[in-house]
Design a protein around this nucleic acid. Sequence first.
DNA 1: GTTTGTGAAGGGATTCACAGCC
DNA 2: GGCTGTGAATCCCTTCACAAAC
Lengths: 276, 276
Amino acid sequence: MVAQRGRRNGAGAAHKRTRPPGTPDADNAPTAEMPAVGENGADPEVRARAIPEAAVARLAVYLRVLSAMAEQGSTTVSSEELSSAAGVNSAKLRKDLSYLGSYGTRGVGYEVEVLVGQIERTLGLTRQHKVAVVGIGNLGHALANYGGFPGRGFPVEALFDIDPDLIGVPVGGLPVSHLDDIPRVCTERQISIGVIATPPAAAQSVCDRLVAGGVQCILNFAPVVLQVPEHVEVRKVDLAVELQILSFHVARRADNAEAAAGGVNGHVVDPAVMPS
Amino acid sequence: MVAQRGRRNGAGAAHKRTRPPGTPDADNAPTAEMPAVGENGADPEVRARAIPEAAVARLAVYLRVLSAMAEQGSTTVSSEELSSAAGVNSAKLRKDLSYLGSYGTRGVGYEVEVLVGQIERTLGLTRQHKVAVVGIGNLGHALANYGGFPGRGFPVEALFDIDPDLIGVPVGGLPVSHLDDIPRVCTERQISIGVIATPPAAAQSVCDRLVAGGVQCILNFAPVVLQVPEHVEVRKVDLAVELQILSFHVARRADNAEAAAGGVNGHVVDPAVMPS
DNA sequence: GTTTGTGAAGGGATTCACAGCC
DNA sequence: GGCTGTGAATCCCTTCACAAAC
C-alpha cells in the first residue's frame, strides 16, 4: 500500500485483535484528549491532508484570537504575536498554520482575514452544523440559551428532555420535545451534532437514540464512557476528570515542595497549604 | 521494582536551551490538551515519579468505572474488563496502572478496592480541594448546584458574581459574594481551585483576582486564553473548540465520502455558507 | 533587516509482544 | 490454562534551527 502513513490500512477489521462482537471498539472515546486523526472508519487511500488532531484543537483557538484581532482592526499578525496571544510558542503556531497551506508573507506576517478564512474552511465552518441538546436541566438551559452557540455556525435546532412538565415549553425560543422523539426529530431536522447533558444513567440510552437519528457527532457532558459504533465521533467534557487532574497537580506540587524542603530556591510555596 | 526505570538519567539541567529572558514562557495553557507533566517551574532534580499527563486523565476515568463496579459488588477485575469499560485498550490500561505500582495479581486481575485506593491517593483525592465558582449565570448555577461536586472531595465553598441583585442570595445553600471580595474570601477560606464561568470579557480580571487570592488551579469555562503566572495551573473547557473539532471531523468525513465517490451516505447539509 | 516555512532532531505516548508469575 | 508487568518498537507531536523569501 501507499507510503508510511498507512499503518492503519488494515483498519477496517483486519488485525483489530480479537474483538468481542458486541463491544463497539472501545478504542474510541479517547479521554477527550487525543483521538488519532486518521482513526475513523474511512478509506485510508483518501489523500489525507492529515492534519494532526492536536493541531486541529489549536486552530480553533487561533481562530478565536484572530477574530478578536480583526474586530480590533488588525490586518496582519506575525507568528510571534499570534502565538503569544494564543498561549503557544511560535514554532508550533507556524507549523500548525503550515498545514493549511502557505498563507504568510516572509518578513511580514499573516493577513488576518486570509487566515480566518482558511481556518474556517479547514475546520468545516463554512457548512452549518445543526445541534440538538438533550437534557434541559441547569446545564442544558445554559447550552440552549447560548442561542446559536459559539459564533454562528452551530444553530441549536432541537431540545429534548424526559420531564413531562418541560415538553412543549420553549427554552431559548425552541420547544422541548420528548426523548422518545429523538430519532424522528433528528432525522427530520438533519441534526449533525448531539449534545448530551443528562444525568449519567440516561446518557447511554440517549446516545443510542441520537445515533439512531443519524447523528454522527456527540458532545458528552455526562460522566460516563459512551459506547458507540465506529462511525460516530464522541468528544467528552468531564468536569470530574478536569478537577481530578487539577487535584493531581496540587498534590504533586505539594510533594515537590516537601521534597525541596531544606533547599532554598525561588519557589513560591505557600506555607498555608492544607496539611492532610 | 528496582533502579531499572532510569531511562531519564541524562535528564540533568544541561540542555535547557537559551530562553529569551522576557518571554513569559507562552508554553503553558496548552489547549486543554496535553501539558507536559514535568513542565512546570519545579526543579528537575526532584525525583519525579513522572506519570504522564495523558495517563492522569485516564486514571480519573478508571476511578469512576471502578467505583461503579465496586457498588455493584465486583471485587476483582481483569485489565480486559476494566479497559473495555473505560474505552481504552488493555495494554494502555496496564501501563497506566503500572505507574501506580504493582497492585495486580498475575493470572487473576486487580482487586477493585485496592485500585480505587491507589488511584485516589495518586490523584491527591485524599485531601480536600475547596472550590470557588465565579460567575453565577446559567452555567455557574449548574456548577454550584452540583453541591459538593463530583463525588465528594471538591466542596464548593465560595460563589462570586458582579450582579448586585445576586449578592447575598444563596445558591445551592451558599450566599453569593462580590467579585471584589475574591482575593480576601479565597485567602480566608483557603480555596485551592477556582472555576471561571463568567463572560469572556471578565475572565482575565477574575483570573487575576483568584491568583491574588492564592488560588493555584483554575478551571476556565470562558472562551479566552488566560495569562497566568507560571506556578498556576489552568485547564480549560471550551465549548466552541469542542464543537469545531467535531465540525472538522464531519467535514473530513464528507470529503472522504466524496472522494470515495459512490456517495450514499448520511446527511451533510447544504453548502449554505456564511460569507464574512 | 525581518519573518515564514520546513527538514531534522528530540521526546512522549501508544502499542507490541513476551517474560514472569499465578 | 490465564493475566499482569514491562522492555522495545513505533508512531505522533513538538521543538530546533536555518534556508528561502520578502
